[in-house]
Design a protein around this nucleic acid. Structure first.
Lengths: 342, 342
DNA sequence: GTGAAAGCGCTAACAG
DNA sequence: CTGTTAGCGCTTTCAC
């Protein structure tokens, strides 16, 4: 280790300020109940010595860590291709920072890592957890519940069993999808297709549900399963054109999917939006703003969702209780952003 | 906080196993120097009680935290559009996990955050830091140096002043660029342009240098500054076509830039690679594999760079010294990936 | 209001 | 080999 010239302790500050450790501690932690002149003196001593509290020592007695784990359980490569997580992380980071909490990042690559994560959380290293685990069959949420750590989920958790009172933050996937499809209908389109996301994820399932809400019973061939990736979108769009050449609109489950669909439409000589209108979901700018033509899409405020998750968790932590019993889910609204493709 | 039914302590395990705390501690930390029957008994007690060591207490005495900070100082939105950081994070995460270290993520939004990060690092909350700060004028590296925390940089640091012995991991930007341009020359191209990245970042500067190495003195109009983004690539390509209509090859500073360039080339009716050959840099698959035609590019193993950074840091930590004096930089090789654009 | 003293849970000498 | 004994640096009663 670095011989980090052992940093000054409370003791040192106390000596310098000519007070007791207890007083310094009080000042450092807000200064309530200490008279002004002393506060000032201690502050100066802290300043001069460059004193920084030892978090380990503090945690040992307070049992708080001012740290929150962010668990991203995405075996797929989606984390690395979709700016979604990055944006949400930013929101989380901002909020945690604002409230002086640290962000411990736990990336899991697969089942093997679950035990590790569970152990870590149960180990009481952090005060709470923010968990992204969007697969229906994911055992992680259950494990986490077992760890007894206050947790807020990103996205409506879809696992079966376990408590039904998980706290989560999500956007209105279903409503957003409804808006999109309604818009397409309003444009006079009649053969409106949907390219889904991976249906074992609630966001994808909810968007499909929104599509169905508006379309009612339709030609089942108009719904093609895909996976939130551009190449998946290509594949699905190709299939779609093969079996329903008369399709005149596509609601893609996310922007990346729409990107792939657009590519195939161009290849096959369909004009967008004249021949086929296209709408995406997410409004991830580097994608939606860059397509040709610019993508009409459903915007969700991803960064805000991150902030909200953090805020929710911290507020329950400060309230001194686990989130259970609190509002079960917070669902943020979406807005349709009209650009050129629909 | 959650009333996490106060977890069992060493004391409790010791009582249950009928040994002393010290013995339990030894077993928990590897079990050297404890006779088999006792080890077994302690193990069982640990198991039965679900004992997990209290990291705060441990840190307090060992002065180790088994935690590493990852500082991403990117005021730009690049983190959120380029899979680069995500991949590197994955590499880092894997290596840290493998060596039982935690990853504390520090995202900075601008100068205001610098002080906070410096304070955190100086506070001795982590054993070391992995820092991404690629701007020439960034004050952060200096601050970090001041904090006295062992640090490994991602990418060759370019700040002036301060120690010249910073440890870093980078890819061979210059050599990779040379390969790319040489390939273009080998294709018989003579009007080879370069769209640069932001030149206040060493990676961009080094790639430009590689271009110059091969091209020597060229028409200065063939070099256009840009910013590693698709829209920047579009802008630059447009400019390039305007002032050098006879351009027959483009080496783009990264894949995202190439993406924008390809878009403009298509718009302007230039065939790729027949009229204009294009090469990118990075080989970020979701980009390079998805362009049309598929992008020829210079691959760097981003995830491996992340792993290496972590490995380097941990090894110096274990060696009980700060990295200073160790090899100054580790430069990974690049390879040209031939696809369809050149 | 301020100080003295008692630990938080653990590791690391040091004895035995 | 195993147990005993000091603390690590901090917060927090409890007296004064």
């Amino acid at each position: 280790m670095s011989e980090a010239v052992s940093r000054p302790t409370l003791e040192a500050v106390a000596a310098r300020a000519g007070v007791s450790r207890a007083t310094v501690s009080r000042v450092v932690n807000g200064g309530d109940g200490v008279r002004e002149p002393l506060v000032e003196r201690v502050r100066r001593a802290v300043e001069e010595l460059g004193y920084v509290p030892n978090q380990a020592a503090r945690s040992l007695v307070t049992k708080r860590h001012d740290a929150v784990a962010v668990v991203i359980a995405e075996p797929e490569t989606r984390i690395f291709t979709d700016p979604f997580f990055a944006l949400q992380l930013r929101g989380i980071s901002k909020e945690l920072t604002a409230q002086d909490n640290q962000l411990v990042l736990l990336l899991t690559e697969g089942r093997d890592d679950h035990a590790r994560v569970a152990r870590y959380l149960a180990g009481g290293h952090v005060d709470g957890a923010l968990v992204f685990s969007l697969h229906l069959d994911d055992p992680l949420p259950g494990l986490i519940e077992g760890a007894g750590v206050p947790t807020v989920f990103g996205g409506r958790p879809g696992w079966s069993g376990g408590s039904k009172s998980a706290v989560y933050v999500d956007c209105d996937n279903r409503g957003g999808a409804e808006d999109a499809v309604r818009h397409l209908v309003g444009l006079g389109r009649t053969r409106i297709a949907h390219i889904t996301g991976p249906l074992d994820q609630t966001s994808a399932a909810d968007r499909l549900q929104g599509y169905r809400d508006v379309m009612g019973e339709t030609d089942p061939r108009l719904v093609v399963a895909s996976d939130f990736t551009p190449s998946g979108g290509e594949r699905a769009m190709g299939e779609l054109l093969d079996r329903c050449p008369d399709v005149d609109a596509v609601f893609a489950a996310n922007d990346l999917t729409a990107l792939g669909a657009l590519r195939v439409l161009r290849e096959r000589g369909r004009r967008v939006p004249e021949d086929v209108a296209v709408i995406g979901f997410d409004d991830v700018l580097p994608v939606a703003g860059q397509t040709e033509p610019a993508l009409t899409t459903v915007r969700q405020d991803i960064e805000e969702m991150g902030r909200l998750m953090a805020r929710l968790l911290l507020s329950t932590l400060n309230r001194g209780q686990s989130p259970t019993g609190a509002p079960t889910g917070v669902v943020l609204p979406t807005t349709l952003i009209r650009r050129a493709t629909a």
